[in-house]
Computed example of a mutant assay.
Amino acid sequence: MAHHPDPYEDDLDIVQTPRPVHYAEQSLLGAILLEPHRLDGIEALDGGHFSNHAHGALWQAMRELPPPEPDTHRSSPTWLNAVLDAARPHAPGLTASYLHTLVQVCPWPKHASAYARMVRADHARRTLLMHAERLVQTATDSALPNPVAATLAQADTLGQFLERLAGQFASHPGSLPRTVTPAPQAGHRGEDAVDEERLLLSTATAHPAELKDMRWLQPDDFTLPLHAALWQCLTTLVNNGQPVDSVTVLWEAQHRGLLADGLEPRDLIDLLSAPVGSPEYWGARVLQRALLARAFDVGSRIATYAQDPANTPHQLITGSRRALADLTTLRTRWHRSTSPPAPAPRQPRSPAVSRAGPPPQVTAVSTRALR
């Protein structure tokens, strides 16, 4: 995430060990202070890319001031003083001595473009972390009126940022992140989730015909393995055209070994005998929790990648895109669950055949015109 301290805070004398990008920023600024004409070879970099506020202020001042003539610059500090005067209103902690420090620490001014790429790369990593953290926060914000829409919108924003990022950094093979990510967390688990799954199973047992239109719900969407297995029992009976009630589901569950773990038959029948509402409603609730949980896991995985400075920009792009792809299938099924089925297209009538001769010529009619 971009570092934006108080502009009146002197953050130049760093006590703790600075990160490598600090030295890249110093070297880039020192290179331009020594040879301002190298600004022309550096594009797509502004003050907001710098992790240090004072460094960003200096860069903006350099960008806004016309570069001096090389001969004049070698013999006069006029341009250096102008840069300092332009940057100080935004970073009062800047001093002339610090500009001399920047000049001294720059290894080679001719490497300015390489230093600039380092600055852009670290800014990309921090910005990716910001987007990933926002996705995690949105997916867990229970106060949102439409959490799924907000979460998917944030996922889109993250995806668009990755697209822009891909155009800024050259790709290369073998670019998966090396970071070990934590195991997915069931962020949607809780008593409410368990209760909704039980209500779904009971209501689906009472109204099994409605399961034929609920292919958008999968066993992996359930929080408890038992509930996922019972959903498979129900869908198997429905797909095979078998009778469905609490006893037939119990029999199917027995064949799947669900009673071997201490589950009592009476408890299973009781679980399936309290229908409320419709299966579609409870199924949508289960799928919503699963989608938000997946978004939480995806955002956490991308944040873990971005927190590891060992990953290159392209590794971050590749790993993050793969993580977002894990959300795509759930997103597609969510849209199927919330969108009304499309009406079947009307078929054009066959032309009437005249007894006096061959059938008349019929011009093609578009499907849209028949609707």
Rank of each mutant, 00 (worst) to 15 (best):
S97Q: 10
S97H: 06
S97T: 09
S97F: 05
S97N: 08
S97E: 09
Y98P: 00
Y98A: 11
Y98G: 06
Y98V: 09
L99P: 11
L99G: 14
L99I: 11
T101G: 08
T101P: 01
L102P: 08
L102Y: 07
L102C: 10
V103F: 01
V103I: 13
V103P: 01
V103T: 14
V103W: 01
Q104D: 13
Q104S: 14
V105R: 11
V105K: 04
C106M: 01
P107G: 04
P107Q: 00
W108A: 11
W108L: 11
W108S: 13
W108N: 14
W108M: 09
W108I: 08
P109G: 11
P109A: 15
P109N: 05
P109I: 02
H111V: 05
H111C: 08
H111L: 13
A112W: 03
A112Q: 01
A112N: 05
S113Y: 05
S113A: 15
S113E: 11
A114F: 06
A114P: 00
A114L: 12
A114W: 02
Y115S: 07
R117Q: 15
R117W: 11
R117D: 15
M118C: 09
M118H: 12
V119L: 10
R120P: 07
A121F: 06
A121P: 07
H123R: 13
R125E: 09
R125A: 14
R126W: 05
R126Q: 12
T127E: 14
T127Q: 14
L128T: 15
L128F: 03
L128P: 08
L129E: 12
M130K: 02
M130C: 00
M130V: 02
H131S: 02
A132S: 14
A132N: 01
R134L: 15
R134I: 09
R134F: 06
L135Q: 04
L135R: 03
V136G: 00
Q137G: 12
Q137M: 08
Q137N: 06
T138P: 01
T140G: 05
T140P: 00
D141F: 01
D141R: 03
D141V: 02
S142D: 10
S142E: 13
S142W: 05
S142P: 00
S142A: 14
A143W: 01
A143R: 06
L144H: 12
P145N: 07
N146Q: 15
P147L: 09
P147G: 13
P147H: 10
V148F: 07
V148R: 06
A149M: 12
A149N: 10
A149G: 09
A150F: 13
A150Q: 14
A150S: 15
A150K: 10
A150V: 09
A150Y: 11
T151L: 07
L152V: 12
A153E: 06
A153W: 00
A153C: 03
Q154S: 07
Q154T: 15
Q154H: 05
A155T: 04
T157A: 15
T157W: 00
T157Y: 01
T157R: 10
T157K: 10
T157Q: 13
T157C: 05
T157D: 10
T157E: 13
L158Y: 00
L158T: 02
Q160P: 00
Q160K: 07
Q160A: 07
F161C: 02
F161H: 12
L162F: 08
L162Q: 07
L162P: 14
E163M: 02
R164S: 13
L165F: 03
L165M: 14
L165I: 00
L165A: 12
L165T: 13
A166L: 00
A166P: 04
